[in-house]
Simulated scan of single mutants.
Amino acid sequence: MQRVTGIGGIFFKSPDPSALGAWYRDHLGLDVTEWGGTMFTWGGDGSPKGMTLWSAFAQDTEYMAPGTASFMINFRVADLDALLAALRDEGCHVLDRTDVSEQGKFGWVIDPDGNKVELWEPPAEQ
């Protein structure tokens, strides 16, 4: 079974996400949108097309809970259900919920250092 296929996004906490986004826009050229992040698209011309997100969250966000870090990495996966089942069989701390939306399917695992890791199966067209 293929597990991780790429990085889907990098998310982190900030005391002032708007100011931080402006700094990244002004100094590094990121096209930070109203939702607080940017989307890097890649692929095409015969290779798989996809995207990687960059986004700052408010310092008090609960999105990364129960992880203990100020960041979270989102990995692209080919088959979320199969991977979550394999991780459970391997004794990993897999969170009991998954989310399904027009953006795809999401699940989470906590690594040995307490970091919440997001696993994302994109919709078929991405």
Rank of each mutant, 00 (worst) to 15 (best):
P15K: 04
G104D: 02
P122M: 04
V32N: 02
T38D: 06
A82D: 05
R97E: 02
G46L: 02
E121P: 12
K13C: 10
F12L: 08
Y63R: 09
D96Y: 02
P123M: 04
P123R: 07
E34H: 07
A56S: 14
W23R: 07
V77L: 02
A124T: 12
P48I: 13
F106T: 00
E121M: 03
S70C: 08
G21A: 11
L20P: 04
F57C: 09
G114S: 06
E90Y: 08
V32M: 09
A19H: 12
D79Q: 11
V94A: 03
Q103N: 10
A85R: 14
G37N: 06
Y63C: 01
S70T: 10
R97D: 03
Y63A: 09
Q2W: 11
G44E: 10
C92F: 11
Q2E: 15
M72W: 05
W120V: 05
A19T: 13
E121F: 07
H93K: 08
G91E: 08
L53E: 15
E121S: 05
Q2L: 08
Q2R: 15
G107D: 04
H93L: 07
E102N: 07
A56L: 09
V94T: 01
N115C: 03
N115F: 01
W108P: 00
T52K: 10
E90S: 11
R76Q: 15
D31Q: 09
I7K: 03
P17C: 10
